[in-house]
Structure formats: structure tokens, C-alpha cells
Design a binder for these strands. Structure first.
Lengths: 238, 238
DNA sequence: CTATCGGAATTTGCTTGCAAATTACAGTTG
DNA sequence: CAACTGTAATTTGCAAGCAAATTCCGATAG
């Protein structure tokens, strides 16, 4: 009886167990991408990241594969990995899917959210409006995302939550660009007011409808981007 | 001028280039899982698959990571990989997401599908009804899926198409179980009739509504499954 | 006969190393 | 001066090998 911790059976799977090199690599690289340190189109060299993270190449390679399946990285055989570069069409497509899933999440959240969760959304909403009034863009967007994450969590559908998380990560590197074009915060705030109202009233259909067309900082601003670029064309083979 | 193919620039990225060991491993293992040869819960041993596929362990490991991010495999650190096992809740959650995305796909397809594509759906539908009348279950389900795939393709949203493909792959191993409980084909066929009608009429809203609640062989039958099991419980530490 | 303990065998995680392919660069030529 | 060719350097893909952790299995005690 040296170190019998529990009389019956120890729930082995409870703790996520300490991080493996591979997991550390995935998380580190994902962060670098989502935070924008590794911008879209950036080449990911195995050796370079291996040195930088102090992890040998093999787990780095495995991390690339995982991130590729997540949609954050593109791997071309024999030519290495690069941060996925989305053109405006892909961004638009992705936002469309996100909006659709957000709507589903809202509809489900209207049914399943606890009172506490509703109030948490309300609190986040208040703070978001404050940030808006103070012009604190960064905080505004963080709270905006926090609200959407909370709604996803309240949907009680982990699969849905997971999908949303993955898709949002994919567009995250572009959010910052979009932030600069900030006009229609008003509309977004108004949408959020309605959302909160609908959530409190447990009106799933209404939440669905609003979220479906919410596109807070999304599609609306893509056209702006479309104008702003025009120069940064992709290689067009003529 | 030995082999100058084009006078300007050769489109380097056109061909997918020949398959690497890693890619072969991913495809082979995915097939084994989706086809049901490696059933849910089945342990995936690196050495065993390495021997079986004639590929060394490294690319196999990379394949595991990729499939894990796709949602087909679960990896527990230091304990190996196994084919993902979905309980009924997860299945239900996944079908909910699929239905939502199918609805979006239908709505978009109503707008973007070419006349040819509409007729292709019509043709698939006819053959599906035939298979139904002849009681050819396997063919019926194949055509059913083909219809949904065609609608996804006609949505002209590759991101959406990709998501649907991934999610459908995840539930694929369970479809066969579900096939055995075949009662409400009628309802499914009726839905499909309406879908085709709506698609021809370019009625996106109607297509959306039908697909949203289509759940052809899906949720409806889950309860059946729930009864049928009760014995095949997971290890419950109790 | 059941349950617990200890050691051997298997299995995973990671490092290292090598061959092949790609990329970069420099010299040469038109 | 620009474009092309050939070679060198980098980089990826894969395989083998070693250490650590886990699992398996038999032995022992209750």
C-alpha cells in the first residue's frame, strides 16, 4: 500500500496528462498563426520552427498535419507547409458557414442556456457597449467574440461548438485587417441588443434569424477590403 | 528548347503531384475507417498498420494526427490512437449540424445550381426511387448520399462542401447500423420529392426548410438504436 | 478463488540520420 | 543586359533506433 490513491479505481482519463512535445508544437504554432505572428502565406520551415520551439522536426511535422486538417495550414508535397491564405471568396464562404452555425447555436442556446449563462451574455454585452463608446476596438472585438463563444457553449452541442471554434480560428488572422474598417459598429451593436433580448425571451427563432444575418464585422466589410486591395493579386497565370 | 511546355510560365501547382507515403497512409486508413473495416473504438497500433500498409511508422503517425483533426480518430497521449467512438449524443449533435449545413447548401444550390446540375439531381432521385421500390438498400443509400453531395457541390461554397464531407465521414461508420432499421423510407422519399420540386422551382427557402428537418435516416432512427443497445455499454467505472 | 503486486514485453514519443527533391545561385551565352 | 543551364545548398520525406511509459501476464498473498 505504498501509494494507493483511491480505494477503487483511479479515473485515468480525468487529467489531460502533461503536454507532449507534439501537443505543445500544435498549440504554439496555432497561436502564432491565429495571433498573426505567422501571417497567411508565410512559409513554415521545419528546421526553423524546430529551432525556435526547441522541439525536433518530427513532432513539428506532425503538428503541421494536424493544423492542415484544421484548415490553418496548407501542405504541398515536397514543397513544405505554409500558413493558409484565404482569398476573399474563401473568406466570404467561411463567414457564410459561420453565420449559419451561429444561428443554429443561438436557436439551441435559447432553449438550453441556463439563467446564469444568459446573465453572463448580458454582462459581456454591457461591457462590449462600453468598449464601443470608449472606442476601445480591441476590447470590443474580444468581448464580441466572447459573446459568440458563450452562445456556442450554451447550445449544449459540443460538436457544433467545436466546428465554430475551428472556423473562427481560420478567419481570425483576417479579423485584424477588418477591424481597421470600422463603420457599422452601430448595426452590430443593434443586432446584439436584439440577440440579448431574444435570448432572454427564449425566442429561438428570433435569435436564429438575427444571427443568420448578423455578419457583424464580416461580409459587410469584405467589399471594403475588396476595394482596398486590387493590387495584392494572386499569381494569375495570364 | 528541350521541354518548354508553355512560352510564359508553367502552372506549377496544377498537378497534385504523386502521392507521398503519408498521403497514402491517410487515405488508406480513412477508407478502412469509413468502410467499417476498422470499427469505432478499434485501436490503431502504429506497428500493425505500418506492417499492413508497408509504410514505416513515421508517416503512419503523421496520418493519425491528420485523421484526429478530421474527427475520425482520437489520440490519447502515450496510449495510442483509436477509431473515434461516438455515443448517441454525439451522433445526434453531429446530425444536427449536418442538417443545418445541408439546409444552407440547399438554399445556395437553389440559387447557383446549373440546369444540368438540377437534372443530375433529378436523375439520381429517379434511380433512388427505383432502388427503393426494388428494396435495394445499399444502392438506395448510395444514391441518397450522392444527391446530398450534388446539392453541396451546387452550393458553390467549397468551404461548406468540405465541412459537410468531413462531418458525413464521421457518421459514416454508423450509417450501416442505421440502415438495418429501415422504416421511414417513405418519409425520406417524400422529403426528397419536395426537395427536387423546390430545387426546380429555385425556391431556396423551401429547400432550406425541408433539409433542415429532413433527417432522412438520421435522428429518427437513433431512438431505435438506443433501444437496441442498452447492452453494449461503455466501461462505466461505477 | 479473487484480488493485488511485480516484472517482462509491448508500444509510444522523440531524436538522429540519410536519400531524394526542390530551390537558390552563379557562370555562361545569345 | 537578360535569359538559360548546371551545380551547390537547403529542405522535405522517410526510416531506423533508443528511452520512457504503459500494458500484459504470471506469481503471490489474503
Amino acid at each position: 500500500m505504498k501509494q494507493a490513491p483511491s480505494p477503487t479505481i483511479q479515473p485515468v482519463d480525468s487529467q489531460p496528462s502533461r503536454t507532449s512535445m507534439q501537443q505543445r508544437a500544435v498549440d504554439a504554432i496555432r497561436d502564432l498563426i491565429v495571433q498573426g505572428e505567422l501571417p497567411p502565406g508565410c512559409r513554415l520551415q521545419e528546421q526553423a520552427l524546430s529551432d525556435y520551439l526547441g522541439i525536433s522536426r518530427t513532432p513539428i511535422r506532425e503538428a503541421f498535419r494536424a493544423l492542415a486538417a484544421e484548415g490553418l495550414v496548407v501542405i504541398k508535397p515536397r514543397r513544405g507547409a505554409m500558413v493558409r491564405e484565404m482569398d476573399l471568396d474563401e473568406l466570404s464562404d467561411t463567414f457564410q458557414v459561420i453565420a449559419s452555425l451561429d444561428a443554429l447555436a443561438g436557436e439551441l442556446a435559447a432553449v438550453h442556456a441556463t439563467g446564469l449563462e444568459v446573465e453572463r451574455v448580458a454582462s459581456l454585452h454591457e461591457r462590449m457597449v462600453e468598449s464601443y463608446q470608449q472606442g476601445d476596438m480591441l476590447e470590443y472585438f474580444k468581448l464580441n467574440q466572447a459573446i459568440h463563444r458563450q452562445i456556442a457553449a450554451s447550445s449544449r452541442n459540443p460538436v457544433l461548438e467545436r466546428q465554430l471554434q475551428a472556423l473562427n480560428a481560420q478567419v481570425q488572422p483576417y479579423r485584424f485587417d477588418i477591424n481597421n474598417v470600422s463603420e457599422n459598429w452601430r448595426r452590430s451593436i443593434a443586432d446584439h441588443e436584439i440577440m440579448l433580448e431574444a435570448l432572454r425571451a427564449r425566442d429561438g427563432a428570433r435569435l436564429h434569424a438575427v444571427l443568420r444575418n448578423h455578419l457583424p464585422d464580416k461580409l459587410f466589410l469584405l467589399n471594403k477590403l475588396r476595394e482596398l486591395r486590387t493590387s495584392g493579386r494572386r499569381r494569375r497565370i495570364a
